[in-house]
């Protein structure tokens, strides 16, 4: 679920870079998926999560996953705001439970479980821009240890008016009236959005498999001058060097103050075709969940769609894909994906 609409085969061919400070995800009709008795209570985040989760399950041909893990930075922000406003506006009188119940951070994971009657492991990570990656790491460890055969993992965040306007007020989001894309950005702050991206990870390669998730690394704080060493260490741990990376998918988001983290990485990965994706889906805490979708598509097709290319380098056969993301210099994540 993205500002470009739902995930579909023609996604990258039809995508248009966004250039507004705040862009909503295009919503499909949920009626076929969610009964009216339930949908009436659901915020966009819950609906988007359910939709994307079902899409991933359908692609994988799995009806009920063994575990469900969701990453979200702000959780069910819309309902939190709604409940808080009623408290403040009515002096703690006449409050109703629905928005409080739905404000809990684990609502999306819970509603997916409820809908699928999935009694397995159910976790929600809420750590800013590594919320989703925490979930990927957890899922990978459980599959490696043989605890589960498959895990549904996703990231979801929704726009809530007040919260986003506050982020705009302090310059995290570009001001209204500034219409820059990532490529044309001359200012600090970013274009924000919302969305949901889900994956089914499985211990077995199947006919539907896109790619292999090899490793996940999360580090809270690292200096610009240390990032290449961190990446080298990560690659070395996986028996690779910086020359082995064929595709690098970077979290470049157009924030002049922090995109500099990605510059040395581009130099370091000498052979990599450098891709970016936030120009299509915008920035939000769990937006980096879209990066593995890019990796998966590139792995499956053997090449990147032109709209994803940041820096034109000679393309070579795709084997190793490195994903690197950070937000405002914190919460760095590295994912290694391999074709399979």
């Amino acid at each position: 679920m993205t500002p470009q609409g739902i995930w579909r085969p023609s996604f990258f061919e039809e995508a248009v870079p966004i250039d507004s400070p705040i862009t909503a995800a295009i919503q499909p009709s949920y009626k076929a998926l969610i009964p009216p008795a339930l949908i009436r209570r659901m915020s966009r985040g819950i609906k988007m999560g359910i939709f994307a989760a079902q899409q991933a399950l359908d692609e994988a041909g799995v009806s009920t996953p063994e575990a469900i893990i969701v990453g979200t930075g702000l959780g069910c922000s819309e309902d939190s705001e709604k409940f808080l406003r009623t408290i403040l506006d009515n002096d703690e009188q006449f409050l109703t439970p629905t928005s409080f119940i739905q404000s809990t951070h684990n609502t999306v994971a819970a509603q997916i479980a409820l809908r699928l009657a999935c009694q397995g492991y159910n976790f929600t990570y809420v750590n800013r821009s590594v919320s989703f990656e925490s979930g990927m790491l957890d899922a990978m460890l459980q599959i490696h240890s043989g605890e589960v055969a498959n895990v549904l993992v996703g990231g979801v965040d929704e726009i809530s008016d007040h919260t986003y306007s506050l982020l705009q007020r302090i310059g995290y989001i570009k001001p209204d009236g500034v219409n820059e894309s990532i490529k044309t950005s001359q200012t600090q702050g970013v274009n924000y959005a919302e969305g949901a991206t889900f994956f089914l990870l499985s211990g077995e390669r199947t006919a539907e498999s896109y790619a292999e998730l090899v490793d996940v690394h999360i580090i809270n704080s690292v200096g610009e001058d240390e990032i290449t060493a961190t990446i080298s260490g990560f690659l070395q741990g996986n028996g690779l060097t910086s020359h082995d990376i064929d595709i690098a998918i970077l979290g470049i988001n157009g924030d002049k103050a922090f995109d500099s983290y990605y510059f040395p990485v581009q130099e370091q990965l000498t052979n990599a075709d450098v891709l970016y994706y936030k120009h299509l889906i915008g920035q939000y805490d769990s937006c980096s969940a879209f990066a593995p979708a890019v990796a998966a598509t590139v792995a499956k097709h053997g090449a990147a769609q032109p709209i994803l290319r940041w820096q034109g380098r000679p393309q070579r056969p795709v084997k190793n894909i490195l994903l690197y993301n950070q937000y405002r210099g914190k919460d760095h994540s590295l994912l290694l994906v391999r074709t399979c």
């Binding site: 809420v126 919320s131 007020r169 999360i218 580090i219 704080s221 690292v222």
Partner: peptide
């Protein structure tokens, strides 16, 4: 404003203690 999200307290604790590596937060009520 930036202290609102659930990850904020974890970041504050990590910084206060001097932890730079793996930092994450869970919220399952």
């Amino acid at each position: 404003i930036t202290s609102h999200d659930a990850g904020d307290s974890s970041h504050k604790i990590a910084d206060y203690l001097g932890i730079k590596g793996f930092v994450s937060t869970i919220s399952t009520a």
